[in-house]
Computed example of a mutant assay.
Amino acid sequence: MATARAFPSPSRSTLFRAAFAVNTTLILAFVYLLFTQASVGAPRYAIYGVTWVAVGLWVLFDTEVVPASTATRRKAAAVGFGYFVLLAGAGGLVTTPVPGGTGGFRVAFLPPGWGPALIYGGDLFNLVLMPARVVGYAALAYLVYETVIEAAGAAVSGIVGLFSCVSCSWPIVASLMTSVFGSGTAIVATVTTLSYDLSTAVFLVTVVLLRWRPGFGR
């Protein structure tokens, strides 16, 4: 059984990738604010959105997957994909149609990180593709993929991370399903709720659990 990884001192390459992810996110946020009608709104929510994107990009750039057989990679990919799908439903990326909701595609210019959000309203399902959620959940799914490949024993921490994240995502589901397909004011209101404080904290903790897997040894 694989041992848990200690919290290592960051290497030069890790620091470089982290700086690249942060700089890229800040540049994109500045360009977004400059060329759209979006506003920062409450500063802390803009910080949350930028944090999700920056941390997500850093995970995707900096996570190295150990060599494995094709069969193992396929199984790990299936687990990672299932994890992303579960988070997409629990975190509000995919929701059931709301009676009287707006159909078709539109873009919501929410604060940086949360916007620009691509929104689709259909007869079978709705999509709310906020950059922070898409990048963040993709990063978590990739960490689960990497965890399953590295060792069967280490996959236990992936399960712990999965349930800890999803269990705290229900406030997000309730917020998005009740307001995101309402008026423009209701859409903006979704980024000014306590669920975003909680979900950001849970996201960061889950990244730590999945990347370093503390507490799981031989």
Rank of each mutant, 00 (worst) to 15 (best):
M1G: 13
R5V: 07
R5I: 05
A6S: 11
P8F: 01
P8M: 00
R12I: 01
F16P: 01
R17F: 13
A18C: 05
A19S: 14
A19E: 06
A21L: 06
L28M: 13
A29D: 10
V31K: 06
F35P: 00
Q37P: 10
A46P: 09
A46S: 15
T51W: 06
T51H: 07
T51K: 01
W52L: 05
V53C: 10
A54C: 04
V59K: 02
V65Q: 06
P67Y: 12
P67R: 08
A68E: 10
A68H: 14
S69N: 08
T72R: 15
R73L: 02
R74V: 08
K75M: 12
A77R: 14
G80K: 05
V85L: 15
L87W: 06
L87V: 12
G91Q: 06
V94F: 11
P99I: 09
G101R: 00
G101T: 00
F105S: 06
V107A: 06
A108L: 00
L110N: 03
P112S: 13
W114M: 13
W114E: 07
P116N: 04
L118S: 01
I119C: 01
Y120F: 15
G121C: 07
D123A: 10
L124K: 11
L124F: 13
L129V: 11
P131W: 09
G136H: 08
L140E: 06
Y142I: 01
L143N: 02
V144C: 11
Y145G: 03
T147S: 12
I149C: 03
V156P: 00
I159S: 07
G161D: 09
F163C: 06
S169I: 11
W170K: 14
P171N: 10
P171W: 07
V173M: 15
M177D: 09
F181A: 04
F181E: 04
F181M: 11
F181K: 02
G182D: 13
S183P: 02
T185H: 10
I187D: 01
T193V: 12
D197R: 02
V202I: 12
L204M: 13
V205N: 03
T206L: 11
V208H: 07
L209W: 11
L210D: 10
W212I: 04
R213K: 14
R213G: 07
F216L: 13
